[in-house]
Design a protein around this nucleic acid. Structure first.
Length: 534
RNA sequence: GCGUCCAUAGCUCAGCUGGAUAGAGCACCGGUUUGCGGUACCGGCGGUCAGAGGUUCGAAUCCUCUUGGGCGUACCA
């Protein structure tokens, strides 16, 4: 819609035209301040220019009016145009807001270590990534959702050791010496019990079997992670294990060419040549690779698989890694601008006003699965999707647990359910409603319809700017308009019933499409939760 | 120190390809259609957009500096 208006104006004026939403809908559907920017070169006042330009439009079927007001040019779309679009959308519901993008994108997100369950911080990145995935696919992009499993290195050794220690302490009742860092928490107790069931108690005291134990535990933790994600409607296409990448090690190092060098028996990446603060160790003296080594082989593998664009979603605490990985990509001979790293900022929690420090090793974490269980996947997804991902977010767990109408998800779902209810109450058939021409709509109905049709623009904007909160904001505002309209305007039994229901159909479709893109269920009927009746 | 993200209403946050009077929710106060779900709607209260310069016809939005915070600055992941 906006694209069509935009391209029409571009042809007309032979330049890009800024199109915006007028502050007040009574001005029209779109407006442009172009007269202000033309004022200087034409040496005329903006008012005069706007006046001339607007009167030059005359008869264009897209617009019912083009007016100049104080230098702005305001466009009002014709009812014919809006009706055609509305009718098309209702006939082709699953096409609403789709586009014909083709690019192949590899989207990597979550990638939490397989050493423990997902916590609330992971949940944010997971929701952000999955929402982008849904938006992108809707627009036609060919996106692969990938999870990188760090199943090599220290943390895996530590996982095996932690289970042994836990078992020796709690099952064999030995006095054990705890190292400085180790994994603990409820899941470790469960894992240890399961490990003993599977392997017998002997494995707890046999240091040589630590690796075996760790690899088994890793699989078990991954199952847990996958289940938690699935409970939030998040699914991955591919999982890449870090451990599987090292067969390629020598070839990749050779490919790095001058980007890699040996010094003091260690291997370094010359990342300082590519804008990093310093060169980084890739292989230690004892031959063990560092964390960065995995990322180098992994990114090489990604680029060899051949996508047009790569998106990584990382926790913001990893932002220092961006220059290193980009440097590696360049040394490998690829265009690092194809790699886009998006950061998901920290989530800090309060509990009853007190800071709640998250630390996986301490075992004192808020688990994603617990929150999903408490407030449901829909609310969790909505809350994270509605906050800019690169801004730190703080909230009180207690408040997060509330399940009343202060949660905007209920507000939006109620709007959708209200429409479905009223349509079921009407005696008109769906066909009668959808085939009614939209003529002579009130200003409010016209405005509501227009707003609902804007979904397509919102989806495109939200994805291309990677700002998924634009969609939640839009849905909140559309729901608010619906509720207000519903309150102000009687529908059933009026002579406008068919037209108005058609408008509401479009609103419902827009809300439903938007919610589905957020991975949220659009309810047909709201059922009040069983409250504890006192 | 350096890098990076940020600072908008009492609280949580939108708005930032520069544009018409800076928005929403929560909280607080007061109201609501002889009608379709009151899980709704309306009004009030509340802002030197951290501060200072600059660019511009026009700045919350762009640039510089200052202040105050989060995160990073590992041969940890």
């Amino acid at each position: 819609m906006k694209q069509r208006v935009g391209s029409l104006l571009r042809e007309r004026f032979d330049r890009d035209v800024v199109l915006e939403k007028p502050k007040d809908r009574s001005f029209g559907h779109f407006s442009t301040p172009i007269a202000f920017s033309l004022a200087k070169e034409l040496r005329k006042s903006p008012m005069v220019i706007a006046e001339e330009l607007s009167s030059s439009f005359g008869e264009a079927d897209m617009f019912s009016s083009v007016e100049s007001v104080q230098g702005y040019i305001n466009f009002r779309l014709s009812e014919t145009f809006l009706d055609e679009y509305a009718s098309w959308v209702l006939k082709n519901q699953d096409q609403f807001g789709k586009s014909d993008k083709k690019e192949k994108i590899l989207l990597e997100f979550v990638s939490a270590n397989p050493t423990g369950p997902l916590h609330i911080g992971h949940a944010r990145g997971a929701v952000y990534g999955d929402t982008l995935l849904r938006l992108g696919r809707h627009l036609g992009y060919d996106i692969t959702a990938e999870y990188y499993v760090n199943d090599a290195g220290n943390q895996i050794d530590l996982l095996g050791l932690s289970i042994q220690l836990e078992g020796r302490a709690s099952i064999l009742n030995e006095d054990v010496e705890w190292p400085e860092s180790f994994y603990r928490g409820e899941y470790m107790t469960d894992l240890t019990i399961k490990a003993v069931e599977k392997f017998g108690k002997e494995i707890l005291s046999d240091e040589s079997r630590q690796k075996e134990l760790a690899l088994w535990a890793k699989e078990s933790v991954m199952e847990l992670i996958v289940k938690t994600l699935a409970d939030t409607n998040i699914h991955f296409d591919t999982f890449v294990n870090e451990s599987s990448l090292y067969d390629d090690w020598n070839r990749v190092m050779a490919k790095m060419g001058e980007g890699i060098y040996k010094k003091d028996d260690k291997m370094f990446i010359a990342s300082s040549l590519k804008g990093d603060d310093a060169d980084r160790v890739v292989v230690r003296e004892d031959g063990r690779p560092t964390y960065l080594a995995g990322d180098i082989v992994y990114h090489n593998q990604k680029f060899e698989r051949g996508y047009e664009h790569y998106i990584n979603i990382w926790g913001a605490d990893h932002h220092g890694y961006i220059p290193r990985v980009k440097a590696a990509v360049e040394f490998l001979g690829y265009d690092s601008s194809k790699l886009e790293v998006l950061l998901s900022q920290m989530v800090s929690l309060l509990k009853d006003g007190e800071p709640y420090k998250m630390s996986k090793r301490a075992g004192n974490v808020i688990l994603m699965s617990d929150i999903v269980e408490e407030i449901g996947s829909d609310a969790l997804r909505f809350i994270f999707a509605s906050k800019k991902s690169d801004t730190a977010l703080e909230f009180d767990v207690e408040e997060f647990k509330k399940q009343d109408s202060s949660n905007p998800i209920y507000y939006i779902q109620y709007a959708h359910a209200r429409i479905k209810t009223i349509i079921s109450k009407s005696e008109l058939s769906i066909d009668e409603i959808q085939s009614t021409p939209l003529k002579g709509l009130s200003a409010d109905a016209d405005s509501l319809l227009f707003e609902a049709l804007l979904l397509a623009e919102v989806i495109e904007d939200a994805f291309s700017s990677r700002q998924v909160q634009k969609l939640t904001d839009y849905l909140k505002s559309l729901a608010a308009k619906l509720h207000k309209f519903y309150y102000d305007c009687r529908i059933i039994g009026t002579e406008d019933e068919a037209k108005l229901l058609k408008v509401l159909e479009v609103v419902a479709l827009s809300l439903k499409t938007g919610m589905n893109l957020l991975g949220i269920e659009a309810k047909e009927r709201m059922v009040r939760d069983e409250e504890e009746t006192v």
